[in-house]
Amino acid sequence: MPKGLREIRNRIKSVKSTGQITRAMQLVASSKMKKAQDAAKAGREYAELLGEILDTAAAKAGGLEHPLLTRREVRVRGVLIVTPDKGMCGALNSNLLRAALEIPGAAFVTLGRKGRQSLARAGRTLLADFPVTDKAAFAEVRPAAEFLLKAFLEGKVDTVEVLYAHFKNTLVQAPRLQRLLPADDLVGQARALREKLGLPEPKVEADERDMAFEPSAPEILSRLPALFYKVAVHQAVLEAKASEHSSRMVAMKAATDNSKKIAAALSLEYNKARQAAITQEILELTAGASQA
């Protein structure tokens, strides 16, 4: 067999086996995507209702001072960046990191290996790094949330923001920067959340009577914002996971389709070359026979 033919055959083989790998990755990503999307959707209602409760409580209590609700001069922005651990998910990582590098005066806390690696390489301030698995359980996210909460209360950072890949649908994910602390504009935040999720305005029953608090208003307002903040962080992580798996599935599907296309083109080339070789051989034989 001529050398050109063997080369083409080897390339077909390697393209096909790459295609098999990307197809397997696509299938894995699509099943994980389904789970992550369901988890993200299920968590929304809880986060939203909690926000509403905090909202009415803050409005009814009126003029209550709370460190988590008070805005102050911003010197250092605390940014929690949620990234995948792995690549192979299209432009998701590079989009997120580009958005991260555009934030001035930011100190980062990373959730996910890719963010840590790239920000460390870019020489940005890293406060801490936390791992998170695909399950993204509340308990896994809580250490990162509590770390930033503590930094905020101690004055190490003056805001807490979360940068993550917002899940619009399976094909569209965009980086989104959301400010969580200080939570001084709860009504606005709740409205932004509703717009984001496509939920209707809640029918808040008009009730002019004073609100009772049990055990007491300060007690509730010291616990609610912290819980709301943690749930909001968790929700962002769930969405980031849904985005990651969707993006990976789409990227792997494109790779699988490409490998099929390349394999088809190479097969055509291979068959042409083989036919040319056979024709050449026959020509040589007949030429040899007529000489004899």
């Binding site: 009415t56 409580a57 009730d207 004073d210 609100m211 009772a212 049990e214 055990p215 616990r223």
Partner: peptide, 18 residues
């Protein structure tokens, strides 16, 4: 609730409780 059982009937005053 944290302070014991609370019964809610229609027309209850606004309440936020743990």
């Amino acid at each position: 609730t944290a302070l014991g059982e609370v019964g809610i009937l229609p027309g209850h005053i606004p309440l936020t409780a743990v």
